[in-house]
């Protein structure tokens, strides 16, 4: 028989609730019906759960989670931030890329509990209210996606990559590692190769990133 779950559930913290849409409106306003909501899991407490504080998109969240919970699953299943996608759960596809203190990271490879004290930014935290981040705008104009599933990861990765260029971090294709790298086609292709797009929007993604990172160098 199924194990009876003895401990009480606690709904912890304040969570940002993104609202789902049905139907795609060409106009800016997206219909927001009540019947579909993004994931807010019950956050069940087991013996051995860890209490933790996560700083996500500028908001503090207090959670009590199974210590095995990855940052990706914490975001998706416990904070309702489903914009970050699970493509492989093994750090092989990049769909779950988020920014940790401005540095891109596969959130499926990081345990949530290890991210206490870090500033976590997800795809939901990039736009300034209704105003899209320049990388997001650029992706739309360049048609830098098709199915859209890898897109949050591609965009977070691209924003993190632009930060790397600003900091002067060289890559495997940087010819002069002492010089400031620039956002060239070769640099972008090399640095974005951790983000797979099975629809293969690669040429458009590179175009979008180049347009958005114009002039971004050290």
């Amino acid at each position: 028989m199924p194990q009876k779950h003895l401990l009480t559930r606690r709904l912890l913290g304040t969570t940002a609730v993104a609202t789902a849409m049905t139907g795609v409106a060409a106009r800016a306003q997206i219909p927001q019906p009540k019947d579909v909501q993004t994931a807010i899991a019950p956050a069940p407490s087991f013996p051995g759960n860890l209490d933790m504080n996560l700083d996500v998109n500028g908001r503090q969240h207090r959670l009590s989670l199974d210590p095995r919970t990855t940052l990706l699953d914490a975001l998706r299943d416990h904070l309702g931030l489903t914009g970050t996608k699970k493509g492989c759960d093994h750090g092989q596809c990049g769909a779950c890329t988020v920014l940790i203190n401005g540095v891109r990271m596969n959130s499926c490879l990081s345990l949530a509990a290890s991210r206490e004290g870090d500033k976590i930014v997800t795809i939901e935290g990039l736009a300034d209210g209704e105003k899209l981040h320049p990388m997001q705008t650029s992706f739309v104009h360049a048609d830098a996606f098709q199915c859209g599933f890898c897109t949050p990861g591609q965009i977070c990765s691209a924003v993190g990559m632009a930060n790397e260029l600003k900091r002067g971090v060289p890559s495997a294709v940087t010819i002069d590692v002492a010089a400031a790298p620039t956002a060239s086609v070769d640099e972008v292709r090399e640095r974005m190769s951790g983000n797979i797009c099975r629809c293969s929007a690669y040429p458009n993604i590179v175009a979008a990133i180049l347009a958005a990172t114009e002039g971004v160098t050290k």
Partner: peptide, 27 residues
Amino acid sequence: IDRIDGPAKVTGKAIYAADVGADKPVF
């Protein structure tokens, strides 16, 4: 023209099957 679902896809607001939480999903 740009995809009309583009803004939803670049902001994480496009809801895929595993994103639908409803009320207290179990796994």
